[in-house]
Amino acid sequence: MVQLEKDSLDLVLVPCGLVIMLGYHLILLYRVLRHPGTTVIGYENHNKAAWVRRMATAASTDETALALSVVSSNISASTNLASLSIALGSLIGAWISSTTKVFMTELVYGDRSQATATVKYISLLVCFLAAFTCFIHSARYYVQASFLITTLDSDVPAAYVERAVIRGGNFWSMGLRALYFATTLLMWIFGPIPMFSCSLLMVVILHMLDTNSLPLHQHQFAVRKRREQRGLSPAMLAARQPSPQNPILSSPVLSPVTFFS
């Protein structure tokens, strides 16, 4: 009877923990789509769009080089986390294929069957592979942005750069979410109670980290060097400067989760 109760903990606590995590992220997705200003993701995407508008008005090669440096640092971060994810995934794969027991089963309060252990490792492997895929796509969009930044003086719309940068950031966020899920599933190796407790703690921490209370600042930029070179007055420059409401520049900002379209 005691063994049956211990085994049933995995059937109750583990789904409850996953439902809590999935429910929180569905609510977060709704907030990002409908009320982006209340989330850190929407706030960061708004500032990224402003950064693209500023780089679109760059008047010197130094500013273009600075933009490429910023994008390059994001590419490096994405590739490093992608390498870490695939390395951890490979470790989990080796762990599954190992015939030896890698932890003391007596320390686990719950189902200790071989089938449950296999499900634990496969779930971890799926999360790490999902994180790897997201980080690779993040690096892909940042690489695309680095190409487009060098063509801003041509007829390429700045919205193309904005879309690439924001989608790269969105895939970065998705990769981090996959790692958060992997963290909770990692605690499942030590039993359903640590996994459920980690899910509750993770949701509380993520809620504090994902909530934004700062207002979305409406950035305005002036192109001093070009104005001096062309003899434009501030009034003429303001008339020619695209506003944040211009559809060319603001397409994906307030609806930033357009990953695949």
Rank of each mutant, 00 (worst) to 15 (best):
F135N: 00
F135V: 02
F135R: 01
F135M: 05
H137T: 11
H137W: 11
S138Y: 01
S138E: 07
S138V: 04
A139C: 04
R140E: 15
Y142V: 04
V143H: 05
Q144H: 14
Q144E: 13
Q144I: 12
Q144D: 12
A145S: 06
S146I: 05
S146Q: 06
F147L: 11
L148F: 05
L148R: 07
I149T: 06
I149M: 10
T150K: 12
T151L: 13
T151Y: 01
L152E: 07
L152G: 01
L152N: 09
S154Q: 09
S154M: 09
P157E: 05
A158V: 09
Y160P: 02
Y160W: 01
V161C: 12
V161N: 02
V161K: 06
R163T: 08
A164N: 11
V165K: 03
I166R: 02
I166F: 05
I166W: 00
I166T: 06
R167T: 09
R167Q: 12
R167C: 10
G168V: 01
G169R: 10
G169T: 08
N170D: 10
F171N: 04
W172S: 05
S173A: 15
S173I: 02
S173D: 13
M174Q: 13
G175S: 10
G175P: 10
G175H: 05
R177K: 12
R177C: 11
A178S: 15
A178C: 14
Y180R: 15
Y180E: 13
Y180L: 14
F181H: 12
T183D: 15
T183M: 15
T183Q: 15
T183I: 11
T184H: 08
T184G: 10
T184L: 11
L185W: 13
L185G: 03
M187D: 08
M187Y: 14
M187H: 14
W188N: 02
W188F: 06
I189N: 06
I189H: 00
F190Y: 15
F190E: 14
G191V: 00
G191R: 00
P192C: 09
P192K: 01
P192I: 07
P192V: 07
I193N: 01
I193G: 03
P194N: 01
P194R: 06
P194W: 08
M195R: 04
M195C: 14
M195A: 15
M195K: 00
S199H: 03
L200F: 11
L200R: 04
